[in-house]
């Protein structure tokens, strides 16, 4: 059985994956047994659903500015269409011969192919959504990188104006993503990183204020204050980088690495 790494994909595909597995087992146990029923109507329903998915998929490709999605999604759509054609062939063949063994094979290959290709398509879409979150994470990293050149309170105010909305978006989106993951360990890492960031952010701002204050008062202890500020910025950078790493993991990656 395939492993789906988000709850949304799992809820869509897990029931059909179980049905396809059962069909394969039944086919192996009862090959050339009873005649197949007329499957024209249910195959037509699948074909119509595939036509709609291909239409929606093409619209998604055309409207997206994600080059990886534009590159990966068409292949998945072609595979869905090809599997649908196998089902149509199976249906025609079974109408002529309800015992046809090649038709049964096409039925299994077609339904399994639809499952795999739809899974690939949803994964492609999901990865594109993840890349949007990662883009936000990179914005936060860019702001953190300038923390050490902030020298005045006015600059600090502007720094906060830039960083705060970005950090809020990352927090909101990563929190939602964490709830979506089926992989508990990955979800827990994201929660832990978010908690760290929420703790570190106000301390970083405080350390920047202290640095600015010390510099404005003549500079004694400025070096230590700068070190402390840089350390906190680095800690936050590490947490964001860990979020980026975990966001890109799927359960499949983990199994492969194991």
């Amino acid at each position: 059985m395939p492993v789906f790494h988000t709850k949304t994909i799992e809820s869509i595909l897990d029931p059909v994956a179980q049905q396809v597995s059962k069909l394969v087992i039944l086919h192996e146990e009862a090959e050339d047994g009873l005649p197949m029923p007329d499957l024209q109507q249910p195959v037509r329903s699948v074909s119509n659903a595939v036509l709609n998915l291909v239409k929606v998929g093409r619209e998604t490709i055309n409207s997206s500015d994600d080059q990886i999605l534009k590159q990966d999604m068409p292949g998945a759509l072609v595979r869905v269409e090809r599997s649908s054609k196998l089902l149509e062939e199976a249906s025609r063949m079974l109408k002529d011969d309800p015992y046809s063994s090649p038709a049964r094979k096409r039925l299994i290959d077609g339904s399994g192919g639809i499952l795999q290709a739809t899974s690939a398509l949803l994964l492609c879409f999901d990865e594109s959504e993840v890349r949007k979150i990662i883009r936000e994470c990179h914005r936060v990293l860019d702001y953190l990188a300038v923390a050490e050149v902030i020298e005045t309170l006015d600059e600090l105010v502007q720094f906060l104006r830039d960083l705060s909305p970005c950090l809020s978006r990352v927090s909101r989106e990563v929190s939602a993503r964490e709830k979506e993951l089926t992989h508990q360990v990955h979800a827990e890492i994201l929660v832990r990183c978010l908690e760290q960031i929420k703790t570190l952010a106000p301390i970083l701002i405080c350390s920047m204020k202290i640095y600015i204050h010390i510099v404005s008062q003549g500079g004694k202890g400025a070096e230590e204050a700068a070190e402390n500020r840089n350390y906190l910025a680095m800690r936050m950078t590490d947490e964001i980088n860990e979020i980026i790493r975990v966001l890109q993991l799927t359960s499949y990656d983990e199994e492969t690495s194991e």
């Binding site: 869509i12 059909v16 059962k22 069909l23 029923p37 699948v46 929606v56 998604t60 639809i114 949803l122």
Partner: peptide, 29 residues
């Protein structure tokens, strides 16, 4: 998202098809 809705429709239709195809075989087992 429309793509999720479209995938749900495919999953439901494929599930119905596979159930129909399985029914006859199940009788035999």
């Amino acid at each position: 998202e429309m793509i999720l809705e479209a995938a749900k429709s495919i999953a439901a239709a494929t599930s119905a098809l596979v159930k129909a195809a399985s029914a006859a075989q199940r009788e035999l087992i």
